[in-house]
Design a protein around this nucleic acid. Sequence first.
DNA 1: AAGGTGCGTTGCATTATGTGCAACGGTCAT
DNA 2: ATGACCGTTGCACATAATGCAACGCACCTT
Lengths: 252, 252
Amino acid sequence: MSQTVDRALSILPLLAEGPADLGRVAERLDVHKSTALRLLRTLHEHGLVYRQSDQRYRLGARLFALAQEAVENLDVREIAHPHLLALNEKCGHTVHLAVYEEQEVLYIDKVESRYPVRMYSRIGKPVAITVAAVAKLLLSDLPEAERRAVAEKLDYPTYTSRSTPNAAAFLKELATVREQGWATDLGGHEESINCIGAPIRGADGRVVAAMSVSAPNVVVTAEELLTLLPQVRRTADAISREYSGKSPLKEA
Amino acid sequence: MSQTVDRALSILPLLAEGPADLGRVAERLDVHKSTALRLLRTLHEHGLVYRQSDQRYRLGARLFALAQEAVENLDVREIAHPHLLALNEKCGHTVHLAVYEEQEVLYIDKVESRYPVRMYSRIGKPVAITVAAVAKLLLSDLPEAERRAVAEKLDYPTYTSRSTPNAAAFLKELATVREQGWATDLGGHEESINCIGAPIRGADGRVVAAMSVSAPNVVVTAEELLTLLPQVRRTADAISREYSGKSPLKEA
DNA sequence: AAGGTGCGTTGCATTATGTGCAACGGTCAT
DNA sequence: ATGACCGTTGCACATAATGCAACGCACCTT
């Protein structure tokens, strides 16, 4: 809606691909060099862009700080964290917390496995939305119409032979998840990794976040992992209770 | 330099404080509501801002994703990570990697301690610049003039009785660090936590990053921690060698 | 139920603001 | 030394951002 800001913000994803010099930025934005310069300068003043020693620009430090503060302001996260830690202490596996936002599911917290074999994931990283247990939980609670719309629009990458193949299968899976109140990902993302997850609900009963426990085959089998389900659900319920009990924000 | 972009970007730190509604944003920016609306909409389109169910705005998901991609594009980090992991496997303590940028020192990687007692820190979080071992290492390598300028401009919070008290003491400490090629923080940030760190150098010999090992008193004494120094330095040197050997970017 | 307040939203006229141009200056390589 | 390249500056022009006032909506009051 605002051309100037729009152009300026378009620089960020561009730089996320890697450092770029002024000419390149101007070219990609299809504006004059002087225009690009002014935009970059403004971004620089705000610390979102950094000028490295070879004069090229890359994303700046304040971006991290902002993302940091943003994640810390999420009240679910704050409440959930100690519970996640406790669960990790008990079972030893990697524990994730995720939310749905603007057609994306992303991890907002993580407690690392105590075992040497760890799965790759990172806070802030978008989740493999068609297969992850947390994604199924979050999407399964969307209003019917939106759920369908999102499911239709998604890509269904075949990470493994057990990945969700298409929208129809995904919607069916979501229905199951919705009913049973928990979800799994059995080798759908990486052949050797299984997850089980449970939803965290607000006072109005809507799913506000989801958590999961992940473990590689080499540590525990899928069956063994499933025995943790009651524990995971209890943890999620405890978080839900605390979250809906005395939420500092969002008293709606 | 660009008023519109400047205003738009000013919204981000504002929202980092917590969610705000349109009126509040307009007020803080000292612009008309309609102007604030247009700016917010543009930010929203780019995913930097999210509109929650109560219509208030808060920082959005793409911010994480951007910060994420940014950190993954840092070549030092990529090279260093396996070394940090290896060191952590050996000694069990928390290992940090940090860089200096625009008068700030910030953690760009971290491997958590295996011990239950962990120190609080987070990737992207600015470091306590006047006391942290990594900060001393990074600042000690700045050109004399800049080092002085930065030292003068800093605040010197008294986190503990052993915190660096003022610019003079800090500059003296930096000189020591510069000469000996390693640094410590013995209870300067938190009374019970000690750190030792070593610099990572590029092909031209300049310090491009710094790493440290941190451990609380209750796990190992400062003296015991210091016995790890050779190991830490060897790790840092190994990273330096690899980094200057075959850097994919920055062939300047 | 009627009236009122507070909030986000829209269309429009004004002019401030961002734009592209052309010329400059520094750096590096030949 | 000479030329090419890239970032930078000042300026005239016109676009694009601004504030205003009016609207619509939801919620609360009496």
